[in-house]
């Protein structure tokens, strides 16, 4: 799927310019519970910014606020230097959005791309050129005459992502774009996005897939309950957590709550223990000491271990450690 860039160049402001400034926006759907509670960050041109979080964490709400679909009840934003409350239409002319849910017209794959090009005012010859290039790039040749609603989930997703490249843009918002894609298509899509980023496209990307975030993103924000828990470059996050080890343990018979309370008291201040029922995940810089404390406590309290495992930290640990209660929160807005 990857190859020559799909979008026209040059575009947008100079490299390094802030294209998205988010300052404490809040949003509530029902006036009671806030889905977004004042996240703040700045994204610069050519950056790939990842939003990670559990279902219902507020990622999609944040995307909707940034793309002018929702108006924040408090706080402010500037998108491409413009205020969404005043310049919504001008902003939308310069962004692309792949929503989390499906969106199609009742027509063929080719028809969907064509109509989208017309909606964006792409002239005839250019429209046909882009349509054919996208159909080829996204492996849709055999499907071009098929009705969109007859496609599988992954095929629909390909059409939806391909369609967004029918028009030029400065910022591309991708809300879980790879859901339903097979491994090859997923990697091809990520490579395709990378080649556009090299041309100056800015990408805001939400995903549950941490490998994707690792592969694509320059910076990552972990969001939960409408707030940012962790925000840093991928390198910093790995440096911060990469020196540590993760010890996973599951206890057998015995007083598990008492064991974990006692263990917590024995651990170093920098160690982080997350407990759920009879299982615990321990992040530590001193795995040998932590392990000897853990075993010694088990012997004195007559606790048996059903499972014990030591491994290196991954981005998944950063994520889990951030969103689980008792996790280590490192916010750097």
């Amino acid at each position: 799927m990857s190859g020559s860039p799909l979008l026209s160049t040059p575009r947008g402001p100079a490299a390094g310019t802030a294209v998205l400034e988010v300052k404490h926006p809040h949003h509530s759907y029902d006036g009671k519970r806030e889905a977004l509670r004042g996240v703040s960050f700045t994204i610069r041109r050519g950056e790939v910014f990842g939003l990670l979080g559990k279902n219902g964490a507020g990622k999609s709400t944040l995307i909707k606020v940034m793309t002018t679909l929702l108006r924040p009840t408090q706080g402010s934003l500037r998108v491409l230097g413009m205020d969404p409350a005043r310049d919504g239409q001008r902003i939308r002319q310069r962004i692309g959005v792949v929503q989390q849910g499906e969106s199609f017209d009742f027509t063929s794959v080719q028809g969907n791309l064509d109509i989208y090009g017309i909606l964006w005012g792409i002239p005839g010859e250019e429209r046909a050129r882009r349509r054919d290039a996208l159909i080829q790039r996204f492996g849709l040749e055999d499907l071009r005459k098929r009705r969109s609603f007859d496609l599988s989930g992954g095929q629909k997703r390909r059409v939806q992502v391909a369609r967004e490249f029918m028009h030029d843009m400065d910022i591309l918002f991708l809300d879980e774009p790879t859901v339903g894609l097979d491994v090859i298509m997923r990697r091809s899509l990520l490579d395709s996005i990378r080649s556009e980023v090299a041309q100056g496209l800015t990408v805001v990307f939400t995903t549950h897939n941490l490998e994707e975030a690792d592969y694509l993103c320059d910076r990552i924000a972990v969001i939960d309950d409408g707030r940012i828990l962790v925000l840093d470059t991928l390198e910093n996050l790995k440096r911060l957590y990469g020196g540590k080890r993760t010890i996973e343990l599951t206890l057998g018979e015995g007083d598990a709550p008492g064991y974990f309370r006692a263990l917590q008291e024995r651990l170093a201040p920098t160690d982080v223990l997350t407990v759920k029922d009879r299982s615990g995940i321990l992040l530590t810089q001193e795995p040998k000491q932590a392990l000897s404390a853990l075993v010694e406590l088990g012997q004195t309290r007559a606790i048996q271990f059903e499972w014990l495992n030591i491994r290196k930290n991954t981005l998944e640990d950063v994520f889990l450690n951030s969103v689980e209660p008792g996790g280590e929160n490192h916010a750097d807005p």
Partner: peptide, 18 residues
């Protein structure tokens, strides 16, 4: 109805339309 149900209304409203 169809545009709300099948996502095209939201897609058009994050496009160049009011």
């Amino acid at each position: 109805w169809a545009d709300r149900r099948y996502g095209m209304l939201a897609q058009l409203l994050v496009g160049p339309f009011t």
